[in-house]
């Protein structure tokens, strides 16, 4: 496991940069995963990592991920969401003002959704959201000292699926499960559920999941299946969904 780089003395050229030996392994806070003097010119880091002088230090437990050429981040599962730019989130309106809405996204602080951050919204014509309504939005900025801001449109101003979520049922799961639900190819539970039922689903990286279906029974079934799938393997999940579907189709 502890492999020192082969060519000990020769200064590494920018072409021969190599990935950290900890990629794919489970790391704990304090681990030094990369020596920046040995890495290439540019290293991009995501959540769970911090630069400390010339080394890259882990701050959260999880699995170290890496994509070429030099992106590093730590993937772990946690209950409390910490906002990151470009995450898709599901939130609940908690306060309403003329210029903005205050949204609870389950993070350390509430988020801000400008009233005009919807597709085609103008001062005269903006969506009417009330306290308690849920929205599907994108995180546009996160700064240490200010509240995170959201937007209900993509970078080019299109709705792209974002916006108010009418009716439906909202529940909370861990961020790890939310990431699994959002991953491609579609995860086993959703694949299996989609095969037998029709429903609408909005998953936020913050672990809030919104489901809507024709009847309350189906909504509850989908929500339960998703929550139960957290610690199941793909095969187990399929079997679980199958048995649930049987129950709903019998009466």
């Amino acid at each position: 496991m502890l492999q020192s780089s082969g060519q000990g003395d020769g200064p590494s050229t920018s072409g021969s940069e190599q990935a950290s030996s900890y990629v794919g392994q489970i790391v704990a806070p304090g681990d030094i995963v990369l020596d920046l003097t040995q890495a290439g010119k540019l290293v991009r880091i995501g959540g769970g990592l911090q630069q400390d002088g010339t080394s890259l230090v882990v701050t959260k437990a999880g699995r170290l991920r890496h994509t070429k050429p030099s992106k590093y981040w730590v993937e772990g599962s946690q209950r409390r969401y910490v906002p990151a730019v470009e995450d898709v989130v599901v939130g609940v309106v908690v306060e309403r003002y003329a210029e903005h809405l205050v949204i609870d996204i389950g993070g350390p602080v509430t988020a801000l959704l400008p009233a005009l951050a919807f597709e085609g919204a103008t001062r005269r014509n903006k969506p009417n959201l009330n306290i308690g309504d849920s929205v599907y939005a994108r995180v546009t900025s996160t700064s240490r000292d200010t509240e995170p801001t959201l937007a209900c449109h993509d970078a080019s101003g299109r709705a792209a699926g974002f916006g108010p979520l009418a009716k439906g049922y909202l529940f909370q799961c861990s961020t790890g499960l939310a990431r699994t639900l959002l991953s491609r190819p579609t995860c086993a539970v959703l694949e299996a559920l989609g095969g037998g039922l029709s429903f609408e689903l909005a998953v936020g990286m913050n672990g809030k999941v919104w489901v809507d279906a024709a009847s309350a029974a189906i909504t509850v079934l989908v929500a339960n299946a998703i929550i139960n799938s957290e610690f199941l393997s793909p095969t187990q999940a399929k079997i679980m969904v199958k048995s649930l579907l049987k129950q709903v189709q019998q009466p």
Binding site: G30, K60, A61, Q78
Partner: peptide, 11 residues
């Protein structure tokens, strides 16, 4: 704290 995902400098 590790389980909660609170950023830490070490264990």
């Amino acid at each position: 704290l590790v389980d909660a995902g609170i950023p830490m400098t070490g264990l």
